[in-house]
Design a protein around this nucleic acid. Structure first.
Lengths: 336, 336
DNA sequence: GTGAAAGCGCTAACAG
DNA sequence: CTGTTAGCGCTTTCAC
């Protein structure tokens, strides 16, 4: 910038004015400055600008895994809102590791992002308190913040799971299995709670063997599924706690003989063709809502932290409407 | 930091040493500084650090759409490599708009990312020349750079498409359709070239009505498909140019009567259950390879820009092995 | 309308 | 081992 000023024969501040489109520069002067900028291939150094202005025009997003088809659209939605506010998005994957979540969140704070959106992997976010006090607006999404008071945007995991299981019950099932994510993940617990509530609503007892929380690794899901489908008291229907579980469960069930009814939490691509009934949540809406709240905070709105819960939708496509095997024998499943 | 120094009763540089874990500080002094840091909730301001050091320890990635299941894993792979090198990843979506690509790439350069990975939307990247000369290492991935000499990492679009179409030909098809992305996208053109090469290899003529390039919007794809399946000279097999086209085509074909053979470029989730034969490319490997090349550049390796081409794999799953409807009955086999 | 000087928070390069 | 000084490139303030 110094070089540009020298070449154009003007002061430093004048170049700054031109670069930032501020008023108070003659058309002629401006032209001379523009020429110098062009000739020198000058581009403003935003690091220096940030240092001076205090705002970085960027927001951070800590999520679980960018490669997960649920988080991709969420991140994209945040990006679009950020873009509308002239901000860039820096996102990082925690890989569901609380330490890595913290490391990433603090690294983003050190970069002085204006705001932070976090999909919690851990259960304790007090480490963010100093940062929030220092002025970094923070919104939690998909899962609530732990041990800290902050804005939260969630899907209705409890209600969604309850509706999905009630749907299976309405179709005649009495023995229903639940396979979910790790018990330290809030949504997993909420969805299990929804499952239990639906069973209780229908006055159905739950056999411990029907419930399995744990990793979403295919092997773990396969074993859980096999266990609840065999044994003395096998289930006739299965509810899956998230998209990863659904994918593996659908694969397994497709390879089996008898029909097993199925409903999964989260919609997945081509589920329509496979006839999979799901409880769909809107990942993009989740991201958009969280980002909008964040920017409202950045615009100075300072009301109490709020919890927003977005509805889920039951989409019947066939797999959830299969009656229990005993009641109606071998009703064909849809091929391909 | 000044405050920390004052509170700990030490010099500024000593605090800097502690914060950066440099040697040359007594255990006792260090403890005092740590206490002050704790008490004041101090966190180093990376903007200032960057300004001083010249390196931001961040890389930029300009891609088409983070919500696309092909780019999610690619981005994640880049992130992992960046993380291994202590760098953060800033990514932005161009939405397949050349202007937006340029805007984003330049914004990242203004932030002084150390390196840039670009999935081109546009065909002319000379706008990056000054930046590259100014020291921002740049690698193009998935599609080649336009009018500029730079590192490029690609999948073998031509070879993959050729193999896929040859596969259909080997299964008896003579009239094969091709539906691809916009003709200004390099991979679309390459894949079409592969299609033509395979047809030529088999000495098959190509009817113009069988080939359709354009948007991947479902409506456009549906219309293209309907057109080549009706008319005087209908195709018996279809090759899809990318994942988006595949999804729509598979939906459409599932709703039709007669069997139409199908092979798609790009693997998609649950394609195994749907029995879709695909040419799979490894998005993660693409990202990893590009990122590794980028960091090699950042480590000072300065050989000539190279073009790396990754192989694709044909995965037969059923849809590509269906024989043509007419031929089967002509040979007297009973269709079932 | 324009420019000189001060300083954002940090680190490199030297002193002590 | 520790501290002082001088900037990194920009914007802010205030004078011209």
């Amino acid at each position: 910038m110094k070089d540009v000023a020298a070449r154009a024969g003007v002061g430093l501040k004048t170049v700054s004015r031109v670069v930032n489109g501020e008023a108070g520069v003659t058309a002629d002067t401006e032209r001379r400055v523009q020429e110098a900028i062009e000739a020198l291939g000058f581009r403003r150094n935003d690091s220096a600008r940030v240092l001076r202005k205090g705002r970085t025009a960027s927001v951070g997003l800590v999520l679980e895994d960018l490669a997960d088809p649920f988080y991709g659209p969420l991140s994209r939605a945040v990006e679009e809102v950020a873009r509308a506010h002239g901000a860039l998005l820096i996102n990082g994957s925690s890989a569901e590791d609380p330490d890595r979540e913290q490391e990433l969140a603090l690294a983003l704070c050190a970069r002085r992002v204006d705001g932070l959106i976090v999909i919690p992997a851990g259960a304790d976010h007090r480490y963010l308190e100093p940062e929030m006090r220092a002025g970094i607006a923070t919104v939690f999404v998909d899962r609530p913040a732990g041990r800290i008071d902050a804005d939260v945007v969630l899907s209705d995991s409890f209600g969604g799971a309850r509706a999905g299981v009630a749907h299976l019950i309405a179709h005649g099932h009495r023995r229903i299995g639940f396979i979910g994510d790790q018990p330290r993940i809030h949504t997993a617990v909420e969805r299990l709670r929804g499952y239990r509530a639906a069973m209780e609503d229908a006055e159905l007892a739950v056999d411990d063997a029907w419930v399995s929380l744990g990793s979403t690794e295919p092997r773990r899901v396969r074993e859980a599924l096999a266990a609840m489908l065999s044994g003395p008291n096998p289930v006739t229907a299965v509810f899956a706690g998230n998209n990863r579980v659904t994918v593996t469960a659908v694969r397994e069930l497709a390879g089996r003989e008898g029909p097993v009814a199925f409903v999964g939490f989260d919609d997945i691509e081509l589920a329509d063709l496979l006839g999979i009934t799901v409880i769909a949540q809107d990942a993009a809406a989740l991201g958009r809502t969280a980002a909008e709240r964040l920017f409202r905070r950045l615009d100075g709105v300072d009301d109490a932290p709020a919890r927003t819960v977005l509805d889920t939708v039951l989409i019947p496509r066939g797999s959830g409407e299969i009656p229990p095997a005993q009641e109606v024998s071998a009703q064909g499943r849809r091929p391909r």
